[in-house]
Each structure stands twice: as structure tokens, then as C-alpha cells.
Amino acid sequence: MKRKLQSITSKLTSASGILGIVIVWQFCCSMGWIPKFMLPSPADIIKALVTDFPALMQHSGITLLEAFLGLSLGVTVGVAAAVLMDRFPSVYKAFYPLLILTQTIPTVAIAPVLVIWMGYGIAPKVTAIVIVTFFPMAIGLLDGFRSADQDAVRLLSSMGAKRKQIFRYIKFPGAMGQFFASLKICASYSIVGAVIAEWLGGNSGLGVYMTRVRKSYAYDKMFAIIVLISVISLLLMKGVELLRRRCMPWETRE
């Protein structure tokens, strides 16, 4: 009961802080201290959300589809890379520098090249999402594998356990926490990566719609899209947290 009260108090404190910022923001806009073309008021943003809700939902479906496909492929590639680098030291030495190199190239810089290679369809968007999501998964999971209890590993080795058994019973369960932590990061990156890729071309998606409203100087609609993107990212991260609790119930009991 005490823990629940602490959780409720913490959430109320966070909510009150956000509410205070919104109130001050609305007051400054209402007094005319901030021009609307620079920063729309929260009331204008909410009005734009309500007015453009059908269009926003239509474009959100495309962005979510791209994010889901890219996230699935990125997580799969990241897990495979982590397993291979943990299993074979030569693979780690050969590919780890390449993993680092892929993260030195901004997504905004590589997205136009993907569009040239793959056109304006869904393929370049999914590829961009894979690029930004597989790295956190690969590095996080690899760190989880390498932080396994070495005493337990030596114990199983002395009992004749093979590498597959050590991986199955020691390394993989011990890396579950890092896996879900990386998945939470990847989930938020997938939405951002999809929107950035959509900026450079396409027929639908939140990034395409944002570009259209920006060119028409409808900044209230643009901020409404930003709010929607933030809400979607938070919901995805919350979904990952719920999945983690379901897959790791012992943490909740502790």
C-alpha cells in the first residue's frame, strides 16, 4: 500500500509540473507575449488535434506500419548480431567497428541516399528505421551477455555443459533486462526514424503531413503532429514495459 501511494504521489508530481508549464505557456500566448507564428498556444494545438483527427489517424497508420516493420527487422538483426559477436570473437572484432561507424552517420544524411536507391515507397523508410534501431539492441544485448555471472558459467562448464546450454540457462536469461531496456529505446527510435525518413519523400505518413502543414504555415497543426508523435512514442514505451513485466514477473514480485 505504501509503495502504491509513493507511485501515485510521484505521478501526481510529474503531472502537476507538466500542467504548470502548459498553464504558463497558455497565459503567455493569451497575453500576446509570444506570436502565434512562433509558438501556438496549447488551446490552438488541441483544436488542431480535434479538427484534423481523421487525417492524423490515417497518416499515423502508415507511420506505425513503417515503424513496426522496421522495428521488427531491426530487433531481429540486432539480436542476431549480438549472439554472433558473443559467440565468435572474430565476428566481434570485424563488425563492432562497423556498428560504431553506422551510428556516426546521421539519419537525415543517409535517408536521401536510401530514397535514391529504393524510391519513394515504404522500403527506404523501413531501412532507415532498421539502421537506427538495430544498434541499441545489438550493443545492449551484447553487454547483457557479457555481464553474465561468471561463477555460474564456470559451474556449468565444470559440470560438462555445452556453450548452447550455458547460453540458454545463464546468458540469455541474465540479459533479459538489457533486452527490454534496449527494446524501449528502439521503440521510440522507430517512430522518430519513420518521421525523418518521410520528410524526404512519400505520399502519406506523419512526416509527409508535417511537411505539408509546415509549407502552408499551419504551425498549430505542425505542433499537433509533434504532440501526437510524442504520445505514440510514450505508448510504445509503456507497451514494452508491460511486456517486460509479463515476461519477467520475478522483478515485479521483488
Rank of each mutant, 00 (worst) to 15 (best):
K162C: 07
I191W: 03
K164Y: 08
Q165M: 14
I185V: 15
D151Q: 11
L141E: 14
R168V: 07
L206Q: 03
V153L: 12
P173C: 15
A181N: 11
A181R: 07
I185G: 03
L206T: 02
A175P: 10
D143H: 08
L206E: 01
L200H: 01
Y169E: 14
M159D: 04
F167H: 09
A187H: 02
A181S: 09
S158T: 13
G193C: 10
A194E: 01
K162Y: 03
K171L: 12
G174F: 08
A138D: 03
D143G: 10
G160L: 06
F180G: 05
L155Q: 02
G202Q: 10
G201Y: 00
G205N: 04
D151V: 12
S188Y: 10
I139L: 15
L183S: 05
V192I: 15
D149H: 09
Q178T: 14
F167Q: 08
W199G: 04
A197H: 02
G174Y: 08
F167D: 08
S147G: 15
L200V: 04
Y169K: 06
G201T: 06
M176A: 13
K162L: 14
R168L: 14
A181E: 07
G174T: 12
I166S: 00
G193K: 01
F145L: 12
S182V: 03
I139D: 11
K184Q: 10
M159V: 09
R168Q: 12
S158P: 05
I196Q: 03
I191D: 02
A148V: 13
R146I: 12
R146P: 00
G144Y: 11
A152N: 06
L155S: 07
L156H: 01
L183Y: 00
Y189F: 07
L183M: 14
G177I: 12
Q150I: 11
R154V: 14
F145C: 12
S157V: 07
K162M: 04
R163N: 13
L141H: 08
A148M: 13
R154C: 10
G205F: 03
A148R: 07
D151E: 15
S157E: 14
L141T: 06
F172T: 15
N203Q: 09
K171A: 06
F167L: 13
A161I: 09
F180V: 03
V192A: 10
G140V: 08
V195A: 11
D143V: 13
S147R: 09
Y189Q: 06
A175V: 11
Q178L: 12
S182W: 04
S204K: 06
D149E: 15
G177P: 11
K164A: 12
F167V: 07
L183N: 04
S157F: 04
Q165F: 09
M176I: 15
M176P: 06
L156G: 02
A187S: 10
L155Y: 00
Q178Y: 13
Y189M: 03
E198K: 01
R154W: 11
F167N: 03
A181L: 09
M159W: 10
I185C: 10
M176S: 12
L155A: 05
G140Q: 09
V153T: 11
A138F: 02
Y169R: 07
D143F: 00
L142G: 10
F180H: 01
L156N: 02
A161R: 06
Q165H: 11
F180D: 05
L156Q: 03
F179A: 03
